[in-house]
Design a binder for these strands. Sequence first.
DNA 1: CTTGACATTGACGTTGGCGTCAAGGCTTAC
DNA 2: GTAAGCCTTGACGCCAACGTCAATGTCAAG
Lengths: 126, 126
Amino acid sequence: MRIGELARRAGVSTRALRYYEQQGLIEARRSANGYREYDEADLRLVMEIRSLMAVGFTLEDARPFVDCLRSGQPSGHACADSVAVYRRKLAEIDADIRSLIARRSEVAAQLALACPGCVLSTGGEP
Amino acid sequence: MRIGELARRAGVSTRALRYYEQQGLIEARRSANGYREYDEADLRLVMEIRSLMAVGFTLEDARPFVDCLRSGQPSGHACADSVAVYRRKLAEIDADIRSLIARRSEVAAQLALACPGCVLSTGGEP
DNA sequence: CTTGACATTGACGTTGGCGTCAAGGCTTAC
DNA sequence: GTAAGCCTTGACGCCAACGTCAATGTCAAG
């Protein structure tokens, strides 16, 4: 398939696909007229990238998963590097959550000073 | 005082101060040679900005607080606009926390699939 | 033949909050 | 006079992940 079809099927823009290629995440063979040609394996790569980005991974974070799939593994998280990224991202997310909770309490305290009673009506912590 | 002293006392760069001025957050009168001249009130403005940024506010978020102080209020959160920003930011932070927690559980689930036992050793949620 | 839908590369724009030169002017101390 | 240390404006760089435009090529259908 060509880039437009891959984009539609993967739910991304053609620009994004060219960008992924530029970043070395995906490759395409070229047909005689210079058009990129993709197959079903490429679609799986792009879907893997998008599902990882959907949970907050960067393209660099996604790279080991893509490499894993391209190395012939049936799933992107079957490789040690991918698992390492999972663990690192989990730690990052935990740190972010802790930081946000700390900020929340600081802001809530300031709001309580500025407008007693306002904090109670905001709905509280999740 | 001139820009260098204000920068030192506020703990910011001179570049940051010029940027705040460009964004209309602070003003400076000019001495005969064209140098910016600041007073203690300006120092308070900059400290207000920094303390807000320290808890994740953008410069735009800080604007109502600065306007409040410049209007003669003794504290930046004494105005209705400031309180509104506090409430909005609290809601934003809450949404961010919820989103991060959702991502965390998705990533943890993927990690559990990829490497059973890994999740338990990461320390758990905050 | 031409229209239209596809494709190509290249390059600039976006967002926020500055960092980092560049090229020069002012002031004071030696 | 000259070195040091302050200041000025202007302008490009950075980070991610593309969006968007430009100018052009390809190909099947009418």
